[in-house]
């Protein structure tokens, strides 16, 4: 058991190591570097050399990778090009803002998804299922920027209930941020909830069709007791992993949503740093977003392992 956990954590670190290699090699082989972008048309001769020296780009690539990785492990990602500020300081408030947004969406989304998923599965092919499933298909497939734009149009512009775009500074306190995040949270929670509800639904349907549930029905176990005692524990466990993967996958959607609402989080920083060709910040963002992805997966694996006695003796599913 302990061995499995350690092995799983090690695998996570190996993945992160490969991510760091990929981003480093990727930014290295793609044409253009920090200095040529920064100096634009003056990128030749003396000035270019000076810039290379200043940013430490004149040493061989592998040496730069090693020193960058050693610093990155300690949380120091170097300096951003555009702002000439330590990336650490740029990232801090952004990460906090994005975390507020994402966790609000997750806390609202998961209970709703569970209820919708269970209801649609138990009333399969009846009216509640057809109605909810139709809505979830719409919520799931429509791109984030469309649902966000429609939310702004209807709730902020036509009804004038809430502010449409966020115009607060990056390091605002939580209470001031609150009215601003309602619409972005709805936009993100909608698509997330739809994905999760669909998975819970098919997971419950699968378990309901299994032999031991048939047995419980034949034995005369009361319907709701059977649902809560026999079906849900077995149906929700495998869903944990899938839900984790979905949350991680939606990181990309959070980027787009933040841009639509002008929300000062990590997502907007992604766009800003890429538009400015700020490669050090892009590298830092890649590592941070990948770490979030890896740790969500790790957490899901460990939760499945803790909660499912059967898996303790087996190898963790990859």
């Amino acid at each position: 058991m302990l061995f499995l956990i350690i092995k799983r954590i090690l695998l996570g670190f190996i993945t992160l190591f490969i991510v760091s290699l990929i981003t480093f090699v990727g930014t290295e082989i793609l044409p253009g570097d920090a200095c040529t972008t920064y100096l634009e048309r003056q990128a030749f001769g003396e000035q270019l050399e000076a810039c290379y020296r200043r940013l430490g780009l004149n040493v061989p690539a592998y040496e730069r990778y090693v020193s960058w990785a050693v610093n990155a492990i300690q949380g120091d990602f170097g300096y951003s090009l555009s702002g000439e500020m330590p990336i650490k300081e740029v990232l801090g408030p952004r990460i906090k803002n994005s975390l507020v947004l994402a966790s609000a969406a997750i806390f609202i989304g998961i209970p709703i998804a569970l209820i919708l998923g269970i209801v649609t599965a138990l009333w399969r092919d009846k009216l509640p299922d057809v109605a909810i499933s139709t809505v979830t298909i719409f919520a799931m497939t429509i791109p984030e920027f469309i649902s966000a734009t429609l939310l702004i149009l209807i709730i902020a512009i036509w009804l004038e209930w809430l502010p449409g775009i966020v115009i607060v500074p990056t390091d605002v306190s939580f209470l001031e941020l609150l009215p601003n995040i309602i619409l972005p949270v709805i936009a993100i929670a909608m698509i997330m909830t739809a994905h999760m509800a669909r998975m819970v639904r098919s997971s419950v349907i699968q378990v309901m069709a299994s032999e031991y549930v048939q047995m419980a029905i034949l034995k005369g176990v009361p319907y709701w007791k059977m649902v809560f005692k026999h079906v849900l524990p077995n149906a929700l466990l495998p869903a944990i992993n899938v839900v984790a993967l979905t949350i991680a996958w939606l990181l990309g959607g959070v980027v787009v949503t933040e841009v639509v609402f002008n929300y000062p989080g990590l997502g907007r920083l992604v766009i800003e740093s890429i538009s400015n060709r700020d490669l050090p910040t892009v590298q830092a963002l890649a590592i941070i977003l990948a770490s979030i992805y890896v740790s969500i997966n790790l957490l899901a694996d460990l939760m499945t392992l803790m909660l499912n006695p059967r898996l303790k003796t087996l190898q963790i599913r990859k």
Partner: peptide, 24 residues
């Protein structure tokens, strides 16, 4: 190969795509 695929999966697609498109 699967380790490398996992690593690529954990980089958000939008970051990678934006980087490629903005440079190429």
């Amino acid at each position: 190969v699967m380790r490398i695929v996992d690593a690529f999966l954990s980089i958000p697609w939008i970051l990678a795509m934006l980087l490629i498109v903005s440079l190429l």
